[in-house]
Amino acid sequence: MNDEQNTKDEQLDELSFTVTGYISKTPHETFEAVADPEQLSKYFTTGGARGRLAAGAEVTWEFADFPGRFPVEVIESIQDEKIVIEGEATEHATAASTRTTFEFSPVDDGTRTLVTVTEQSWRTTVGGAEDAFGNCMGWTGMLAALKAWVEYGIDLREGFYK
C-alpha cells in the first residue's frame, strides 16, 4: 500500500470540505465582492448583508429563501488575501461554531483570482455529513454566483432555492 492510500484510509476527527473557483477579476476586486456587504447582497445574501467582513465587525446575513438573520463572526481579515468567519453551528458540529476560510490567490499575473473556500467543524456522523454536504452545496453556489455577478452582472441566486 502506498502513502497516499494510507492517508485516505485514516479515520477523521471531523468533517471538512474545500471548494474552489477561478474568478476573472483581480484579487482586490474579488475580495471586495465578498467583504463589502453591498456587493455581497447583490448576488449571495438575498435578504441583505450588514457589516463589512473585517475582524471584530458585527455582521449579519439574511437570505430571502432561508428566512432569518444569521450572525457572522469575523475572526480574521487580510485585505485581498483571506477572510475567516465563524457561524453558529447545529448539534452536528464538533464546536459551537463552524469555521469558514476564504482565500484569494492571484493567478495569471494577478488578472484572475483562485478563490478557495474551506469549512470545518462537522462531526463524522450522518447528521454531520448532511450538514457539511448541504453547506458544501451552498458555498459552491456562492462561488458560481460570485463569478456570474462580478464578471457578468448576473444574479444566479434569484429564484434558485424557491
Score class of each variant (00 low, 15 high):
F104D: 00
T118K: 13
E103Y: 01
V117H: 07
G128N: 00
T94Q: 05
L114F: 07
T113W: 02
T94V: 14
E130N: 07
T118I: 11
D80Q: 13
V107S: 04
V74P: 03
A129I: 09
I78E: 15
T118F: 10
R99V: 11
T101K: 06
S121K: 12
V126Q: 13
R99W: 03
A93H: 01
Q120M: 14
T100R: 08
T113N: 08
T101V: 14
W122Q: 02
A129F: 15
E86A: 11
E119W: 00
D109S: 10
T125A: 06
T116C: 04
E91P: 02
K82I: 02
D80M: 12
T125C: 04
W122N: 04
D108S: 15
I85A: 05
K82P: 00
G110K: 07
E81S: 14
T118Y: 06
E73Y: 10
T125E: 05
I75T: 15
E76H: 06
L114V: 08
E73V: 09
S121R: 09
L114M: 10
E73C: 01
T125V: 02
G127V: 04
E73L: 07
E119D: 03
T98Y: 12
E81A: 13
G110T: 06
E119N: 10
A89S: 12
I78M: 12
T111F: 06
A93I: 01
T118C: 08
T98K: 05
G87Q: 15
Q79M: 04
G128T: 01
E73Q: 12
D80P: 08
